[in-house]
Design a binder for these strands. Structure first.
Lengths: 149, 149
DNA sequence: TTACATGCAAACTGTTTGCAAATAT
DNA sequence: ATATTTGCAAACAGTTTGCATGTAA
């Protein structure tokens, strides 16, 4: 396992050429294999996305590429280590990955298990208490849970 | 935006008599069995608590009462349905239950997997965007993740 | 007495891992 | 050539469930 920890690429969304994708992977220290290119295309080829491993696996199969579920998991974790995706703790029962790695928050539609970004500018959190001695804040997650009105 | 299902009684923390606990369970429509009394004592007998099922099981065994893990799970869910505890989505790998069912937020110490309440008054969230059509906000979770400084 | 609760082990879900075969450089 | 990556199936953790037995009312 040799991950290169570099500043995550400000990738342009929208259909990404294989060359761009290859570059992206290379810079992350990952060989551009068929599987990683297929997953990368789905993840980074069309704006910000929220996926579970299972869902991404279904998608890649539907797209005609065969990639094992284990590889989907491994790849998502490699992408995460490379800073290309962020993992979200939303719902204990499955892991969600977000291709938007910038600072932003989420709506979560409970019944549908569906996630949506909240524009980064809108929410403001203040009145934060001091973290306990010897600790620092690494990240603040805000999840706005929605139900049918 | 600060919707709350009516919480069924702000029970007094601190060592709770068996009679009080029995009452509490009765009002929740739950028979005061040995197991539920033992778990209830641990959960509601000493201020606000954050527990995983596994940890609570260890505790109750350590306290000399034998309660199966399955019963711990079942009981936590019954307590949750009764509004006596709240389940937290913090970390995909295990479920945490919080005996503080009022509106408040959390510090989460990543490495230790430890949770702490943040005083309810301190954090303020504003600039919330409108929920999508036909949806309403059921709850807002704020988790402040901490790492060693 | 009877409806509810428990314990056990087995089932299940989502995720991870070990290892031989395949692939990228 | 060789280091990395993959797929598979088996392992795994946490959680849930079916059912016979035990218990509260």
């Amino acid at each position: 396992m040799n991950e290169r920890h570099e500043t995550p690429e400000p990738e342009t969304p929208e259909p990404m050429s294989e060359t761009r994708l290859t570059e992206l992977l290379r810079r992350a220290g990952l060989r551009p294999t068929r599987q990683r290119l297929a997953l990368g295309q789905l993840l980074f080829g069309s704006g910000d996305r929220h996926v579970s491993a299972e869902a991404l696996h279904a998608e890649v199969e539907a797209a005609g590429e065969s990639v094992s579920l284990a590889t989907v998991y491994n790849t998502l974790h490699q992408f995460k280590r490379a800073g290309l995706v962020r993992e979200l703790a939303i719902d204990g029962s499955r892991a969600y990955f977000d291709t938007n790695v910038s600072n932003h928050n989420h709506f979560f539609i409970e019944d549908a298990g569906e996630l949506m970004d909240i524009d980064s500018g809108s929410i403001r959190v203040d009145g934060l208490p001091e973290p306990p001695e010897g600790m620092r804040i690494s990240h603040i997650d805000v999840v706005v849970r929605l139900v049918k009105a």
